[in-house]
Design a protein around this nucleic acid. Structure first.
Lengths: 181, 181
DNA sequence: ACCTGAACACCGTTCAAGT
DNA sequence: ACCTGAACACCGTTCAAGT
């Protein structure tokens, strides 16, 4: 009801969301360093100070972006896993992982760039844990033998490394996908 | 002669180097966002404007840090390759790569974080190319068969992914090294 | 609750000088 | 050549108000 009642007094039914959308646009366009509270506020049409009602600091806004990124990644991994036959599940998840990195390089880098530390951002830690959990469980299901943990870690690292190389434009997404077997 | 003649008029025989050292300390202590020209100048004992004699912009300073990082990485890879027997060369390089990421996480992230683009920084592009070349040549020497390119890329991605996981503190360096076989 | 304007200490960058 | 001080437009963050 608060979203569409058209009241004129407050600009937004959901300023928090507007700020995240604006910040995401800034992130995609110019990387982390282009994400500023003041510019996000400008894009959302509010004063430079309004964001503090929703984010305690610039880092909190960045943490929210990273959190959304991990949720989207987890969603993509889950969808890929559901659509694949059991035998091809790991490859399907790997492809989804690589496509995520390729489609939103800036967010991928924010998620893994160390600018926001998970400590002190429980939502972020939870979202990141959930995304890794989705990947790990599928890896584990394919490697139930002895030495499974090491093989699971290798598979994870391979996908993760390929994703970084894709995000850094060192290789293109197709070559990366061909490495998944 | 200019380094130690103790002339009092100019603070430094090599302000450029002093600034890089200062910026590196800032990078290690607080990540990319903590690297500012003004603070580096302060640490070097010069006015906030002096750095512009040596770096055209903040990004140029960051590019210099990344360049030094790639040179150090290349050095570490070369040393590791020289010390290893031919059969264990790839593993040795992988270990050196992981140790580099573990020892200087912030620089590793700067090198691969996308904040500085290689285009427009030829020194950086050259240093990065040289480091990758060292890795690639050893990978290629171990995989001379058909499908070699794909296997080389897999090996590279594995090491790179492990290094990122180490830099992000998702796994520790020992577990990562155990994955190199 | 949610928003605003003024204020403070920072930063990158430029300019006009000084030796 | 190399350095300085003043200046400008930004930014994060805080404070005192307004509805």
């Amino acid at each position: 009801m608060s979203t569409s009642d058209g009241g004129g007094a407050y600009h937004h039914g959901d300023l928090r969301r507007s700020l995240i959308v604006a910040a995401h646009a800034l992130l995609r366009a110019g990387g982390v360093e282009a994400v500023t509270l003041r510019e996000a506020a400008r894009l959302a049409g509010v004063s430079h100070n309004a964001p503090y009602r929703h984010f305690a600091s610039r880092e909190a806004l960045l943490a929210a972006l990273a959190t959304e990124g991990f949720r989207a990644l987890r969603q993509a991994l889950d969808d890929a896993g559901r659509r694949a036959e059991p035998g091809g599940r790991l490859t399907a998840l790997g492809r989804a992982y690589l496509r995520f990195a390729d489609a939103d390089r800036a967010t991928f880098r924010l998620m893994f760039g160390g600018v926001v530390e998970e400590a002190g951002h429980p939502d972020l830690a939870e979202a990141s844990g959930a995304a890794f959990g989705a990947l790990r469980s599928v890896v584990a299901e394919r490697e139930p033998s002895a030495g499974a943990e090491r093989e699971a870690l290798r598979a994870w690292a391979l996908v993760h490394g390929l994703a970084h190389l894709v995000a850094d434009r060192q290789i293109d997404a197709e070559r990366a996908e061909a490495c998944l077997t």
